[in-house]
Amino acid sequence: MRILFSRVFSRISGIRRKSLFDCPQHRQSLVFGTNSHSSIDFNPKEKVDPFSLVADEISLVSNRLRSSTVAEIPELASAAGYFFREGVEGKRTCSMVLLLMAKAMDINRPESSFNCIGDSSRVQLHRKQQLIAEITEMIHVASLIHDDILDDARTRRGIASLNFAVGNKLAVLAGDFLLFRALGALASLKNTEVVSLLVTAFENLVTGETMQMSATVEQRCSMEYYMQKTYYKTASLVSNSCKAMALLSDQTPEVATLAFEYGKNLGLAYQFIDDILDFTGTSASLGKGSLSDIRQGIITAPILFAMEEFPQLKAVIEQGFDNSANIHTALEYLWKSHGIQRTKELATKHANLAAAAINSLPESSSLDVWKSRQALINLTQILTTRKK
């Protein structure tokens, strides 16, 4: 079903799918990687809480998301709004990043002025930026619903997964419903560049999931394949949405690229920590089962790094993990290796690249802009030191 939607959207947008390692954004990222700061310089006096800066806006976004799931059929409305209910709506990390990014790029904002025409334009832009956050959340949740169906998952965010609660058929329809609501909202922006970016992100989600499902043993044991799949599944949506924020506010191509770089590297760093927590976290802290990836035969960075130290681990991967003894053997190799530490270092590297992108934005004298940028930098540390 998701592959079908990907093809439909591709025809609408006319976009040809590109590999991460062939796309212009990735080539530009290599330039930033060369010139970026080697570490993040945190000053305790400059700590800014990312969530508090946009808490009111996130509340508005959450309310609109609940309204967006209203449907003619009550069962469909209930299923589509399952993860938007108060208490189970998640951390809204995507919304937080995007709303902060919008503020961080408000480069020409005057500190004190009153212009009726300018004020009206600013309100319209602000609403469009909030709509990008809503669209991104709908695509994100729809992809989680579909992923849980494919993985036959039983839990998500500490509660029953939607497929487990209502069955696969209604869960599929609920995910599809959210995607079409997102597409309708996207069309209302009447911005072809933004539409292309979000369609690309959605297609990448489908591509990444397909890569994971169809990978050969050699591909599963390849760090390059893992990085590309991880970008598609985790980082493409936030990076393209960050860039969409820049395009909506008529930023230069250079600023748009920096926004893309922040989202891409933050998304990658986030996933690397997720991969660690799958081995080190508990089911209670994760809101889903621990060791879920390896039980499904999904090979992530910690195991890939462990395999570099213990090549014999590849033979265990080839045998598969239907046998719990093979899981136990793989874990023994992992704990003897530096796999967890090297994955942490990889997450830190990309967190630093994300922070460097924010530090490279054009200067601004606005205190609000400065606070938003500092919050985005602080977020790179928060997400890479989390325990759940």
Rank of each mutant, 00 (worst) to 15 (best):
I139W: 10
V141D: 07
V141Y: 00
S143T: 11
S143G: 13
L144K: 11
L144R: 09
D147T: 10
D147P: 12
D148V: 01
I149Y: 12
L150W: 04
L150S: 10
D151E: 12
A153P: 05
R154T: 14
R156M: 13
R157S: 15
R157C: 09
R157Q: 06
G158R: 11
G158M: 07
S161Q: 12
S161M: 04
S161L: 08
L162M: 08
L162H: 02
L162F: 08
L162I: 08
A165D: 14
V166E: 07
V166Q: 09
N168C: 02
K169W: 02
K169G: 03
K169H: 13
L170V: 03
A171I: 01
A171S: 15
V172W: 00
L173F: 14
L173P: 07
A174R: 00
A174Y: 00
A174S: 10
A174L: 01
G175P: 04
D176C: 08
F177Q: 08
F177H: 15
L178C: 04
L178D: 00
L179F: 05
L179I: 14
L179R: 05
F180Q: 06
F180T: 12
A182F: 01
L183W: 05
G184I: 10
G184F: 08
G184W: 04
A185I: 07
A185R: 09
L186F: 07
L186N: 13
A187C: 08
A187K: 09
S188Y: 05
S188E: 14
N191T: 14
N191W: 11
